[in-house]
Design a protein around this nucleic acid. Structure first.
Lengths: 152, 152
DNA sequence: TACAGTCCGTGGACGCCATCGACCTCAACC
DNA sequence: GGTTGAGGTCGATGGCGTCCACGGACTGTA
């Protein structure tokens, strides 16, 4: 994990569809060398996936909500997690410090669907209460911050 | 934006580095047809970017925090937004309904850096108070939910 | 110093892919 | 019925991904 690797990570976080040839030009190596480095970053768990980032409204997911979850005293945290995992609307799930054990980011098409989701969450065993905040707009999301040292 | 487009979007959300030839096979069109469709999805604002998803800890961003922001009564929301925008640690920014106008997701390397970020946030004009929650672990993040109708 | 092993790179070769242009098909509309 | 436009296929070509053989730098050992 040297400076070139960090550089490759930054480049791919900016545009995951860059060709190996282009990456090679940017970092000053040959294409096979870059190919091998990126392969190691993938198999070493640094690069988890390559994803297209989509404007949610355009695919019918216009409602974004952030939901805090308080567990009840008998809750089995693993079971609660599994219950969340099978709900596809829950795009992100953080285990938090504080009264609320989880913070979920969910996306649905309509407020009615959000209502149904919240009902389902409140019904899942181990969940004592939920607190939902609605995002009126997403200013930006998952903006990658550069990590590579500036190339001198 | 028909079923094939939704299918392409799902495929690219799952793996942004799929070749056009492979996409073509999956949706049952020719490669040039897929090339044109994807190009229109990009220029039409449906596909915003292609990003490599990285394990944050491996690139020195081990601390994740979610920060609620309360604006003061004289705040200019646009100015506050711009102040947030130039802070690279703030990866996501939602404008929320409720007492807290914004919810930020920030990632930094250490708790000390988080402390500095919070101080900076509290000092920015228009910000009345902040409330920070620390994510002990990220169970998952930005999991794409399928949107295409199941191919019969 | 000499030597062997390892790591990490380069260069060449080959087949697949991206991409362009020409053409086809179908539906909508005068 | 002819025209137009959208959106598809097909074929060609140049570049790219990927495999392989090879080479130089570094390290530990005799």
């Amino acid at each position: 994990m040297d400076a070139i690797d960090l550089n490759l990570v930054d480049l791919l976080r900016g545009n995951a569809r860059l060709s190996y040839a282009e990456l090679a030009r940017q970092v000053g190596l040959s294409a096979p060398a870059v190919h091998e480095r990126v392969g190691k970053l993938e198999s070493g768990g640094v690069i988890r996936a390559y994803r297209a980032e989509v404007e949610p409204e355009t695919i019918g997911l216009g409602v974004t909500a952030l939901i805090g979850i308080v567990e009840d005293s008998e809750a089995d945290t693993d079971d609660v997690l599994e219950a969340f995992r099978v709900m596809p609307e829950i795009e992100s799930c953080y285990f938090m410090a504080g009264v609320e054990s989880f913070l979920l980011k969910a996306r649905v098409g309509t407020i009615a669907e959000l209502e149904q989701l919240i009902v389902r969450l409140n019904r899942t065993p181990g969940v004592a209460s939920t607190r939902t905040g609605i995002a009126l707009s997403t200013k930006w999301e998952n903006r990658p911050q550069p990590v590579a040292p500036p190339t001198a």
